[in-house]
Nucleic acid binder design. Structure first.
Length: 271
DNA sequence: GGACCATGTCTAC
DNA sequence: TAGACCTGGTCCC
């Protein structure tokens, strides 16, 4: 599901599957009918991802910009495309395979200039090889809680609710710590960790954040299955014991999103 | 079949 | 900060 790793993975998969080829495009659901008609029959020249934004370049037609939002999905299939099931906003296909896009919050056609403007309002992306210093410049002068800053796409692009909860846990940082109380050393460690975790997320197409020494087998506990499909420390584990210290994982609404942390492993910094 | 929930973001008050 | 919105999965009746 859609944090930055999903989008980068999609950009890669779409490039491998369809790159360089002329594609048929349609909008069975109808809400992208005009855009689909404009790229129909055009060659896919390249794909790009920045944070949670996906871009598909079509020769002579510009860029299809997709944001999956909370519910969006892309489903791939081999062979000729069957009758569309459900609300398919955009279907791309060749005779040999197809991709169906459902439920995106955005699916629109952009010019190069539109795309540039979008990049300009997005922050550093751990999956684009950025060094994180522009993000640090904003974080280090903000009194906003770090948990909120990590999800501000203008500061940092691609991190969502799972990665923010998990990376703060891995670094033992209280999510409510104001940005300007973080040290540069802590930030470079967080940035490097995010880049590594998210690269692994792209590879595996799921979010795993638990260190090998904390996996249940290594802790002498029975294996577990997290219902969102990856191994995590605190995300959506409210009320359950922390895998590391046993303290009950807490949850709270912060800036209209659910936040999860372990008060034992992520104690408040001294004032 | 309906209620509810979700890894996101924008807009209006 | 509340509500809206895009959709599908899960749970309950």
């Amino acid at each position: 599901m859609p944090e930055g790793h999903t989008i980068h993975r999609l950009a890669g998969d779409l490039g491998i599957r369809f790159g360089g080829r002329a594609l048929r495009a349609a909008s069975p659901q109808g809400r992208f009918a005009e855009g689909a008609a404009l790229v129909d029959g055009k060659r896919l020249t390249g794909t790009d991802a920045h944070g949670k934004h996906l871009f598909l370049g079509f020769a002579g037609a510009g860029w299809v910009h997709v944001h999956l939002g909370l519910y969006g999905k892309v489903a791939f299939g081999d062979g000729p495309a069957p009758e569309p099931v459900g609300a398919v906003r955009l279907r791309l296909h060749t005779g040999a395979g197809y991709a169906d896009l459902r439920g995106p919050s955005t699916c629109e056609l952009l010019t190069d200039a539109d795309k540039d403007a979008l990049h300009a309002r997005l922050g550093d992306d751990p999956l684009r090889g950025d060094d994180g210093e522009a993000a640090w410049a904003r974080i280090s002068r903000s009194r906003t809680p770090l948990a909120t800053l990590l999800m501000d796409q203008a500061t940092l692009a691609g991190v969502g609710n799972v990665y923010r909860a998990e990376v703060l846990f891995r670094h033992g940082i209280d999510p409510r710590l104001p940005g300007n109380r973080l040290t540069h050393g802590q930030w470079t460690a967080i940035w490097a960790d995010l880049a590594a975790l998210m690269r692994e997320g792209v590879r595996n197409n799921r979010i795993d954040t638990v260190r090998p020494e904390h996996l249940p087998e290594a802790m002498g506990r029975p294996p577990r299955v997290d219902d969102h499909g990856g191994e995590v420390y605190v995300y959506r584990r409210a009320g359950l014991p922390c895998h590391v210290c046993g303290t009950e994982v807490r949850t709270e609404r912060l800036a209209a999103r659910n936040l999860f942390w372990c008060p034992g492993c992520q104690p408040p910094a001294p004032a």
